Computed example of a mutant assay.
Amino acid sequence: MRVVLLGPPGAGKGTQAKGIANAYAIPHISTGDLFRENLKNKTPLGVKAQSYMDAGKLVPDELVIALVEDRIERDDCKNGYLLDGFPRTVAQAEALKAFNEKMGHPLDFAVNISVPSDILVDRITGRRSCPACGATYHIRYNAPKKEGICDNDGTALIQRDDDKPETVKTRIDVYEEESAPLVGYYDKLGKLVTIDGTQSPAEVAEAIKVALGGAR
């Protein structure tokens, strides 16, 4: 099973990615994790990416594509993979399609978790995290036992800068401008499955299970 996971910030992609990867025994490939791994191990691609980041520049498409292609060529991807955070643009999607065709393994599904912007803002701005243990909470949906305090170690919870209202709106705008066209792209290819992300995580997981053929 080869799956691309689409959806705006706050749609719940991280939660659902784990379920899909476990169900099909395929690796969950997050581009964020992939970057960190290559930077930490100082791979040739990682060193190249670091040079752009050190200069305050965006890592170019061709380098991001090379990182992803290098990862999905590994043995653990023989039976498939779940891509989370890639592709971000139609150009990246075209490159992935060409690579998959060359490998003889076409993409099976593009799962799009759809959530209205106002709900996304509410979800993300309510997040709080523990700077000590990394535990995450939500002031409305998953509140700590004591307001503002981590259940695990008593540390004061923080709101990350990228979870603040002004930043969240910018992140959603960027997604709509750059990544939303992917929905149309995969729809034309007949690969798109759109899931209502306003449901509970369990309901979203069940809807994905049905859409992918029930093998979860």
Rank of each mutant, 00 (worst) to 15 (best):
V193D: 07
Y52E: 07
Y141S: 04
E94V: 03
P8R: 08
E203F: 09
Y186N: 04
L63S: 03
K42Y: 14
I65G: 06
T31R: 03
Y185C: 05
G85P: 03
D76I: 03
G14E: 01
I72P: 06
C133M: 03
A180N: 02
I124P: 01
D61G: 04
A143F: 12
G85W: 00
E73H: 10
A17N: 00
L107V: 11
N152R: 11
Y185E: 01
P27S: 01
Q159H: 08
K57C: 04
T170W: 09
N152Q: 15
R140S: 14
L107G: 08
A55S: 12
P60T: 06
I113Y: 05
L34N: 11
V3N: 08
Q50N: 11
P131I: 03
R2M: 08
V204C: 12
N142Y: 14
A207L: 12
P9D: 10
S114E: 14
A98S: 14
V68D: 05
P87V: 10
V111Y: 00
P60M: 02
L82Y: 15
I139D: 07
F86Y: 11
G104F: 10
P87C: 00
L83Y: 03
E62T: 08
A135E: 15
N79H: 12
F86V: 00
V193Y: 07
G213K: 00
